[in-house]
Amino acid sequence: MHIAEGYLPPLHAAAWTVAAAPFVVHGARAVVRRVRTDPDSKLLLGAAGAFSFVLSALKIPSVTGSCSHPTGTGLGAVLFRPPVMALLGTIVLFFQATLLAHGGLTTLGANVFSMAVVGPWVAYGVFVLTRRLGGGLALGVFLAAALGDLATYCVTSVQLALAFPDAASGVAGSIAKFGSIFAVTQIPLAISEGLLTVLIMRLLIRVSPAELTRLGVLKPGPAAAPVTVKEAGA
């Protein structure tokens, strides 16, 4: 769920843009450095970005009977790491605003902060933590995708609540109101995205181990075994 164009008051829109900027600049500098040392990685990054855009266009069925789109933040963070996702997510959100009118230019900063910064970092943190605690790859991917999705929507609810505090109970009451609409309803969808991401990851391990090795998700070797947490976090 993207915050629509013009929805946030100007000061809030500017503040979220400032909050997201350091992460995006950090990601952009990492990408520029990587491209300078390995020009071929430009093509890989283009493929990764296009994959993220198209992944977010898939329709997943929810337990409530409705349909939704995955945020793709969990899978993106595990495959490409959060700094790269901050930049790729920003480009994807810009494309979604200008190609689909989903989101907007004034609300780009707020959407980037929730979907390209907090979502991927929460997902990656959960993935690393699960693996360190001895959880399997499937459990790590499931929790990363589900909690990354949920974190995105919780942040969106907070952004909306800060912009429009409740008349009686202030920001806290407003968080409850927006959270009940945009975050609680998201729980079944987050579970759906988690399950789907596990299935996609299992499929990728089977059909595309070379690319996963190149991305650092699998460690090199004939068996193409999943990397340990220390390697994944490096």
Binding site: A47, A48, I60, L199, I200, L203
Partner: peptide
Amino acid sequence: YRSLAGQGGAIFVRAF
């Protein structure tokens, strides 16, 4: 879900 995972896998493989 199996079909959707197939779609996700297919776009990953084709993109790369």
